[in-house]
């Protein structure tokens, strides 16, 4: 299968804080790669590099073989066309209604009529299961609805790649499940490539084709959910809940209750 996104040894420092150290990743066309890592571990920073919102200190990123990292402003425009991003905080435009939020991208592209924009908005709202809420303001929405509207907003640009930043964080389990289901459905329906960042291992198992583990700014493991479940690596174990980390691994919390330090 074709490689869609290629991250080649990127490093990033903010002040003296080294956030990413020599991170390399490959994402294949049509797959969902989940990046799992602890809070403050640089997951959002990594996603922002992939879409070109941040520039690495060293290393490069290729999208369909084309370099993102050496471009800014105008050069990025054609590449951005391929992307949609759902931000961690949803980042809906607070002064605009839901419909205006979703329609903003197409409207500012100035290639659609108002009627077409309205159709796009309806269609995308339907895709995320929120028909008829176009007139609400963002502050009237629940957290889960905001995430879905943010998703609809990025879908309005018909992206080939969707980046999800913590799509299920701060949501209750049933709502989180709906979102996960939605991510899977969209992958099936639209054949998009996606990169999802999360610290929720259950979400990673559910939606991920492969899981990459980001630890202290490094990718320490890339594997399928099955391989992760079977892994005995103690660092991998940190991301799993006690009973999930395979019992019987030496030093696993299941085996040696108080000895894991």
């Amino acid at each position: 299968m074709k490689t869609k996104i290629e991250v080649l040894g990127i490093s990033k420092k903010f002040g003296d804080h080294q956030v990413l150290r020599d991170v390399s990743l490959k994402v294949k066309e049509g797959e969902n790669l989940v990046i799992i890592g602890s809070s403050g571990g640089g997951k959002t920073v990594l996603l922002k590099h992939i879409i070109g919102l941040l520039k690495p200190d060293s290393g490069k990123i290729l999208i369909d073989g084309e370099e993102v990292t050496d471009k800014d402003g105008f050069g990025l425009k054609p590449l951005r066309k391929k992307f949609g991003m759902v931000f961690q905080s949803s980042a809906l435009f607070n002064s605009l209604t839901v419909a205006e939020n979703i329609g903003l991208g197409p409207r500012e592209a100035r290639i659609y009529t108002e009627k077409e924009i309205k159709e796009i908005v309806e269609e995308k709202l339907q895709l995320v299961g929120l028909e008829g809420i176009g007139d609400l303001m963002p502050e009237e929405l629940s957290g889960g609805m905001k995430k879905r509207v943010a998703l609809a907003r990025s879908l309005a640009m018909n992206p080939e790649i969707i980046l999800y930043d913590e799509p299920t964080s701060e949501l209750d389990p049933p709502t989180a499940h709906t979102i996960n289901q939605l991510i899977l459905n969209l992958k099936e329906k639209l054949k998009v490539t996606s990169v999802t960042v999360t610290h929720d291992i259950n979400c990673a198992y559910f939606i991920g084709d492969r899981i990459a583990m980001l630890h202290e700014g490094k990718i320490i493991k890339v594997a399928t959910p099955e391989e992760i479940r079977a892994s005995c690596d103690p660092i991998v174990g940190q991301f799993l809940t006690r009973d999930e980390w395979k019992k019987g691994c030496p030093g696993s919390p299941g085996l040696t209750e108080r000895n894991d330090a």
Binding site: L53, R80, F83, F87, Q88, L104, G105, E108, R153
Partner: peptide, 13 residues
């Protein structure tokens, strides 16, 4: 601070 400027950029605005 709420990432809306970044969101604009991703919508190519």
């Amino acid at each position: 601070v709420s990432n809306e400027l970044d969101a604009l950029r991703t919508l190519r605005i």
